[in-house]
Write a protein that binds this DNA or RNA. Sequence first.
DNA 1: ATTTGTGCAAATCGTTTGCATCTGA
DNA 2: TCAGATGCAAACGATTTGCACAAAT
Lengths: 128, 128
Amino acid sequence: MLRKAGLRPTRQRMALAELLYGRGHRHISAETLHDEATLGRVPVSLATIYNALHQFTEAGLLREVAVDGTKTYFDTNLGEHHHFFVEGDNEVIDIPDGAIGVGAMPEPPPGYEISRVDVIVRLRRLKA
Amino acid sequence: MLRKAGLRPTRQRMALAELLYGRGHRHISAETLHDEATLGRVPVSLATIYNALHQFTEAGLLREVAVDGTKTYFDTNLGEHHHFFVEGDNEVIDIPDGAIGVGAMPEPPPGYEISRVDVIVRLRRLKA
DNA sequence: ATTTGTGCAAATCGTTTGCATCTGA
DNA sequence: TCAGATGCAAACGATTTGCACAAAT
């Protein structure tokens, strides 16, 4: 998988790939991934985590999700879909495919093309 | 206007309000506003800029636009609308009202309510 | 052997905070 | 007068970078 993406399968990258793709889709931040790697007896430096996340993203293995807050999240789900974002908890949740539909697409300004459309449904926790 | 929002009309806040609302709608970052204020012979400290932007936002005079995580943009357009975001230039552009429509709204997970829906259409500059 | 990746620590960026000083009602 | 606002500089958290060392082809 890494080889196919043009990335050398190093010990660290393989361990990270395992964490990322080992069990279903995930939304993960650099910090979280670093913690998981460290706990999972594969100490990887933070710099390497960032390198890997960006390389994976460039290689099309991950997708960056810009929600809010100061953190960057990476999504292992590459399919067309959108996100819930829980304000306060900074939690990202997939919106089931088809549960939301973007209607008419606006015409991009001249000289530009649409690269992607992101829909973020912000959630607030109900009191009581 | 400031008074109505429960904010003391100080010299700085009035100058910033003038810059923000003086000529049409704007998408502005703290840094940009700071530069404008400084150039406009009203030196305001960066800390005060941040204070003002957040207070204006809380008072409902501004809206925070989360596009790319690294920088925070504030929008003087309070109406229902969405945004184009030019990758690379980090430029935010309003999508004309009605040019985009969000269809079926997903059911929020139990215990949560929808606070807002943001649509961001990411643009890439056409080469050539 | 050569290229590429890794780790560490220092550096950067946007933003926030503590605190002493000022200012508007 | 005096609560509230401002400015400065230091503190911050997330991310990036420079460079010596290690590992993959």
